[in-house]
Amino acid sequence: MGKIVDISKWQDKVDYKAFATETDLAILRVQDGSTIKDMVYQTHTAGCEQYKVPYGVYAFTRFTSVEDAKVEARDFYSRATVGGRKPLFFVADVEVKTMGDMRAGTNAFIAELRRLGAKKVGIYVAHHLYNTFNLDYSKADFVWIPRYANDGVSVIKPNYPCDLHQYTDKGKIAGITGNVDLNRLNGTKSLDWFLGKEDVKAVSKPVNQGYYKKKYDRLVSLTDVGVYEDKEFKKELKRHKKGTKLDIIDIAHSKNGTPRFITCGGYVTANREYVKAYTVK
C-alpha cells in the first residue's frame, strides 16, 4: 500500500510524477478561514489530476458564529470545485476555538457543505480538543485525528476512535523535499471507501445480531456501561451512568465478530440488554 499524505502551500515545490509513485491518496488544503486561500491548491490539483493521484480537500476553520460557518463552507466548496474539480471528500479542520459553541459551528459548516452537494464530509479535530469541543461526530462521514510520536517514526494510537490517524509530521515522500504529514487507516473504513470505490458505510452493513442492521445516530444506556479504549474491551477508560446519551460514530466488531458501538470517547457494548440505539430524526 502507498501513502496517504496531506499537503498545503508549505509544500510548494512538488515533482508530481514522482509523488504519484508513492501516493495512494492526497488531501489538499484549500483555505485557512474565508480570507486566506491556499495559493498552491490549484497547482496541487493540476499535478494530482495529471498523474492520477486521488485527492480530497480540507479547510482550516476560523468561523466565529453559525452564520459565519456557513459562509466559510460556501467559500470552501466554491474554491475546491472551481473548474469542474471533483474532490473525493471535504474535511472541516477544527483545531482552534473560535466561537463559544464549536459543536454548533461545525454542524452548520458540515450541513452547508452537504446542501451544496458534498457527498462525503469529514472532521479533523486536534487530539487534545476531541472531548473539549464536544463535536457531534455523527454528523460527519469520517473522523481524522492527529497524534505524533516525538521521534516522527513510531506510531502512537489516538485515544479516541477515528478513521484516519495523522501519525507523523516528519514523514518523507517521493517528489517532495522536507517533511510531510503522513496518515494511516485506523477505523473500519477501507482505502477504497475514501477513494469512492466502496460507497456503503461500514455502519450500514448487517452485523451478527439482527437488531443492529441499520445506522443509528444515538444510544442511551439502560444500565451503567463502560467505555473502552479498544473493541476487544481490554482497557476501560470510564463509565457512564444509566440513562446517558451518546453519539454513535460507527459500528466495529471484536475479533470474534461481536458488534461494538464506536462513540465519542471510545467503544461501548452493542448488547441490547445494556443499551438502546435509536435514530435521531
Rank of each mutant, 00 (worst) to 15 (best):
Y278N: 09
P146C: 08
D136M: 06
E67Y: 07
E49L: 14
V5G: 08
N186R: 12
H127P: 03
D32W: 13
K197Q: 10
W144M: 07
V200P: 12
L25M: 11
K201P: 08
D230A: 03
G187D: 04
V275A: 06
I4P: 05
I251V: 15
D199F: 02
F89E: 09
N186M: 10
A73H: 01
F233C: 13
I176A: 05
E198G: 06
D141N: 14
Y228T: 01
K3G: 01
L129Q: 15
A18C: 04
G265R: 07
P158A: 11
N271A: 01
G210R: 10
F90Q: 02
A104F: 04
D32N: 15
K215L: 14
S34I: 15
G178A: 09
V14Q: 02
R62L: 12
T223H: 12
E72L: 00
I262T: 15
A46H: 06
G33N: 00
S78T: 15
Q166I: 07
A140K: 04
Y16L: 12
L88G: 14
T43I: 14
P161W: 04
A80L: 02
D224S: 12
K86R: 10
A46C: 10
P146W: 09
C162A: 10
P158Q: 01
K97V: 02
F60D: 06
M102Q: 00
V153I: 12
Y137S: 10
R239T: 15
E198S: 14
D141K: 09
G175D: 02
W193Y: 13
D32F: 13
A104T: 00
I249T: 11
L222M: 11
R239Q: 13
Y51I: 07
K86V: 10
A18P: 01
V275R: 05
T43N: 14
E273R: 10
G117Y: 06
E22M: 09
R272H: 13
F261G: 01
T61R: 03
G266Q: 01
T258S: 05
I36C: 11
I248L: 09
K214C: 12
Q166D: 01
E232P: 06
V57H: 00
G210L: 13
E112M: 12
R218I: 09
Y41R: 03
D15F: 11
Y77I: 08
L113D: 00
G2Y: 05
L195T: 10
K231A: 12
G196T: 00
V220E: 11
A46R: 14
R147G: 08
V275Q: 03
K235R: 15
N179Q: 12
